[in-house]
Design a protein around this nucleic acid. Structure first.
Length: 464
DNA sequence: CCGGCGTTGGC
DNA sequence: CCAACGCCG
């Protein structure tokens, strides 16, 4: 009888909780190989830092899987069949995650595997409820969050797999030999940023700290970037180190505004996954096509302005602080994501997907569904479209959510000596703008007006 | 068909 | 209080 090899394909879900999947496959076959495909199209061109975080997670997984993890960089449609062929006859292929991402790509992989006569078994999804499962009464997709979140809660989800900590023999990833290594990728910028510790054990530790210390004030403080009272779960959720069902189960029957607020954040992740699942094109295009008529700047001046935005040199301290945190930590506080996004879209009149792409290239937790639809929400072109006239004022936002200016001073050293909330309007300082800090690149009042004028084209497109 | 509502606001 | 529109029930 021909020997058989099981190839367990971890598409983007590194969840060690899927070990049972791997072990069962290994049991059934003579040999098991865990395959993780790094798809450059999903990873983005930059981010040695994020690659390191990812590799940290992979090393841990590799240790847990007994050194059988194979990491390949490339297009899954090409890589997976290649590995299948190389692994030999009688191969069983198991894809660990069919989420909403790159549906077309999945179809190509499925076809290639079918052509090779391989068996494809689907396993878990990195969502509490798999996208496409929560439906409106008429069976259609939800377009508004609140009804979705109610239906989602009613629908419920199965209990999480309880494999972590108890059934895994933990190995310090840094001591593992022969595991995957972080390799510099051409075009990567050097990055010595402080990233969270990778892997499931770190995720569980962070989560437990959050339950003990952060959750209590979550509702009140999560919008204050200087306090940093977020759960920090997003990178771990992205790479499947922790499962949302685990988080939801740990919240259990706890009550209170903060618990509800956190559960709602999980629901948002589920909602946007669902939206993208139903409308894969919305990753790159306006969900609301009337916005195709919005006049956008795309000339060389526009690119120059994009550059100032990415560098954190817009002259608006709260915007610049956010953009610099992104570069330094591969992460940005959610409040700042909204502020800098609003600035790009409504003060600079640039395409939202320019900003979304930059975020995906730098964020350690960059999730295609949440990111693109968060941007579309800001742009007004997405689901739950915020009214077009809702334009964030970067000064007001700074004063409201960073009232003491601590967050700005942490990330904008040129302003480190400006006390209190005066830091939000350096152009008003008696001694002028501190050395090295730029003047505001636009006049907010003017550009706000300009945005409202540009939206007239969208309104006109909607008229019958 | 109609009234109410919509994560995150501004002036 | 503004201004505003599609989705929801």
């Amino acid at each position: 009888m021909a020997s058989s090899t099981a190839v367990v394909w971890f598409r983007r879900d590194l969840r060690v909780a899927d070990q049972p999947t791997f072990l069962a496959a290994a049991d059934a076959a003579d040999r098991a190989l865990a395959l993780f495909v790094l798809d450059p199209a999903l990873l983005g061109p930059s981010g040695a830092a994020r690659t390191n975080f990812l590799y940290g997670c992979l090393r841990e997984l590799d240790a847990a899987l007994g050194g059988n993890l194979l990491v390949v960089r490339g297009d899954p449609a090409e890589v997976v069949p290649q590995v299948a062929t190389a692994a030999g006859a009688g191969t069983v292929h198991i894809a660990a995650d069919f989420g909403p991402y790159g549906l077309e790509r999945d179809e190509r992989v499925e076809k290639a595997l079918a052509d090779a006569g391989a068996e494809l078994i689907r396993t878990g999804s990195p969502y509490a409820v798999a996208p496409g499962r929560v439906e409106k009464g008429e069976g259609g997709p939800f377009k508004v969050f609140t009804p979705f979140s109610r239906a989602w809660a009613d629908h419920g989800w199965r209990a999480p797999a309880r494999t972590s900590a108890s059934s895994c023999s933990w190995v310090d990833p840094s001591t593992v030999d022969g595991g995957p290594r972080a390799v510099p990728v051409p075009g990567d910028e050097p990055c010595d940023s402080t990233l969270p510790e990778p892997g499931e054990r770190a995720a569980v530790q962070r989560w437990s700290d959050f339950l003990d210390e952060g959750l209590h004030d979550y509702e009140g403080d999560r919008d204050l970037p200087a306090k940093h009272d977020t759960s920090g779960m997003s990178p771990y959720l992205k790479y499947g180190c922790v499962h949302p069902r685990t988080l939801l189960a740990d919240l259990g029957e706890r009550r209170g505004d903060s618990v509800r607020a956190f559960r709602t954040e999980i629901a948002w992740r589920e909602f946007y996954a669902d939206v993208l699942y139903r409308r894969p094109d919305s990753a790159r295009r306006n969900y609301d096509t009337a916005f195709d008529h919005l006049p956008l700047r795309t000339d060389s001046d526009a690119y120059a302005d994009l550059d100032r935005w990415t560098q954190g040199r817009t002259g608006f301290p709260i915007v610049d602080a956010g953009m610099r945190q992104l570069r330094a930590e591969a992460w940005m506080h959610n409040r700042l994501r909204m502020v800098v996004a609003s600035f790009l879209v409504k003060d600079l009149h640039l395409p939202w997907w320019w900003g979304a792409r930059h975020f995906m290239q730098y964020l350690v937790d960059g999730d295609l569904a949440s990111n693109q639809h968060g941007w579309q929400w800001t742009a007004g072109s997405g689901t739950d479209a915020s009214p077009y006239f809702r334009i964030f004022n970067p000064i007001t936002q700074g004063e409201r959510f960073d009232p003491d200016g601590d967050y700005v001073r942490r990330w904008v050293p040129e302003l480190a000596d400006v006390p209190g909330k005066a830091v939000h309007q350096p152009w008003k300082l008696r001694d002028g703008i501190p050395e090295g800090y730029p003047e505001p690149m636009v006049d907010h009042r003017t550009e706000r007006r300009e945005s409202l004028d540009r939206y007239e084209a969208v309104k006109a497109a909607r008229r019958p």
